[in-house]
Design a protein around this nucleic acid. Structure first.
Lengths: 222, 222, 222, 222
DNA sequence: CATGAATGAGCGTTCATTCAT
DNA sequence: AATGAATGAACGCTCATTCAT
């Protein structure tokens, strides 16, 4: 009864699902959610509509799944990078931000979907999207709280400062995504880092920051 | 051609166009661009579809026109408020930000459209939206450049810092728009101001900032 | 604001709606509900899909509307015929049944829809269909009750007898609808009438019954 | 071809086919023909679609097969019961009808399919369905003919009377199927029997009828 | 015999847009 | 200027059926 539900078959299914998702990432990134039809996706993925609906309940299901996959990927890599911080507060921060920019740069389509396409989709989805942003804000707020208690940063409200911090990064990313490909995202790193270090009242040495950025950008942290 | 295109008639036409726009603002804010049909708008405005297409080339034309009107309104009021700055750098900044939050708070639907609905619409529209954001960034960058030359602020790159600055405000607005109505936007003012003043390396007196905010929020600058 | 909502326009709209309905009656009668696509109807009616959905919410709405129209028509003509009864119980019954068969014969497609297509459609619709059958049964039951109280008929349970009575007519109609067109529905009249008169314990004179049927079938009661 | 098509294997195949049919009866009865997908059936039967198409040519084949099985079952039990009749015409009829109602009551899903779902399916199927009804009518007509020749019943046309007779039973069944489960089908027996006995001009003794019904309903004729 | 992934024609429905009145 | 009936391309989605394994 189950010689077709074997591990091999399951792996093939998973592979095909991933194939559809990765194809969809490209298509969504190029046309946006509403500008993308299911037919666009299946044509690009070279499958039939029936196959699409075998793997996904509907178009929104694809997007939600895709969104989850994308955010999970980003979380994971971000957390990995954050482990290496906390030794020196100034260079730690620098490395985290630099890493984040670097990681984003190599996943332009993903970033486009998360930061552009996913905004203003529909009220139901909004909640999910907000939740993701809040996750970033909360992680940041958690760090800020600890640092503030240890008098290592000087800010007014922890939550609002975390929002502002995430806001600076977000804006840089959005601007980059909407520009042509000529600029390198990582070129923004130094100014962005300095802006936020000053905002947090962290004393820093310019040379150390530059060095930290340089190291991060030239290390394979993946 | 000139017989009945009198000034009077023209005024009536303008009034009706404005009526459609202001109605559309509500409808778009409630349902989003893709969630709003032309019929939704004309029903709410109590006109016929035919009339709609007399005043607007198509649905996108409405949105673009609406977007221009909205951004113009915001520019104008922002410029008015910015005139009163530059006397004292710290309190001047404070007043500008506080004013901006206050103004936004009283125009929630507009802000929703500008910051949420307009994102990720379609590639063509994206350019326009980016242009608007850039306008804000450029104004800010202009101020920053002058201030930097006069050694009144301490930042790395002027452009990128302006992006970061606008980013902090943007994030606060978005978070507020996506929360329920319970919080007051202006409650974020103090922390947001302090974050950016520090980021810019401006020395400030906390008490003066609080006073500046208080004054701004209790003055009818409109 | 309303020179297009004139009586004239409204009449045109009503005419078109009736046109769609009468076209749909033919198409549904030929193919059944599930065998009929919206495209079948609009092609036959020579309108566009858009126009169809301007007049009807959806396919089911069309069927429901159509069903109501059809049943209303039948009720009306049935009630008109029933007015002329009650003088002589035996001939009165005969005339009513004969008239009903005659009326049905001239509306074959309608009858097909009511008695064949509408059965087993979907659970929601079933309620409506059952309601119509019950209406017929209840009218009959009302008559039976009165006649029983006046000792003019001899039956056990009024309700169940009414069901049986309607059942005899229904079966004759269904058989006729599913046969080819060669037989005349009214040929069944005499036997059907006698069967039910005997079932109700009504004493009758054969010759009078035949006369009553003959009169009914040759009179324009419409 | 003969190697493993042994009797044993054939029995297994038959058993599985019956399993699918009996499962399908439930599913069709619950959702109707058009409301039931092949997947619904195979899920409920815990087999794969492939297996389904091994046993049945297509969905309609299943329904036709199922329909045949169901009608055969009913015929068989009906014939068995009819053997015990003809001794006393009045009580014989009573017992036959009572038995039929009793048998139907214990096979509600089957009856639902035969009398509701199968109606108005599609023109091709209609023929088969009509044929089944005609079989019942013809059996009845055969009995009527004989009885009429022996002057034991008094009716006009044999065929039409048989239709009317079957029609009374049919209507009672349909009404019962479409009502909630609260009423017992056999409660209709007495009135239904009396209605038809009178219609056929059979003299009867009320008490004997009641007794015959009581006996039938309390005997295990299966 | 059994499986279930793959297919794609075809469905009901939407809605921006047009144009005769 | 204003109306709203009419249009039809295009959408998301279903599901009976096939066939390689």
């Amino acid at each position: 009864m189950a010689y077709k539900t074997s591990k091999e078959t399951q792996e093939k299914k998973d592979a095909k699902k991933r194939h559809i998702i990765s194809t969809a990432i490209k298509v969504f990134a190029a046309n946006g959610y509403h500008g993308t039809t299911v037919k666009d996706v299946v044509d690009e993925a070279e499958i039939s509509v029936g196959t699409f609906y075998f793997y996904f309940k509907n178009k929104e299901d694809l997007f939600q799944t895709l969104y989850d996959v994308v955010t999970d990927e980003i979380y994971e890599s971000l957390f990995n990078s954050l482990k290496k911080i906390n030794v020196e507060i100034d260079t730690g921060f620098s490395k985290a931000i630099a890493f984040f920019l670097k990681a984003t740069e190599s996943h332009r389509p993903l970033a486009k979907i998360m930061l552009i396409d996913a905004v203003g989709l529909n009220p139901q989805f909004e909640a999910k999207r907000a939740e993701v942003t809040n996750k970033f804000i909360n992680i940041t707020a958690g760090h800020f709280k600890e640092l503030k208690q240890n008098s290592m940063i000087k800010i007014a409200d922890v939550e609002v400062s975390a929002m502002a911090f995430i806001g600076t990064i977000n804006m840089i990313l959005v601007e980059w995504l909407q520009s042509d490909n000529s600029k390198r995202l990582t070129d923004f790193a130094y100014t962005l880092i300095v802006y936020n270090l000053q905002a947090l009242g962290i004393i820093f040495n310019e040379e150390n920051i530059r060095k930290a950025i340089f190291e991060t950008l030239n290390t394979d942290l993946c």
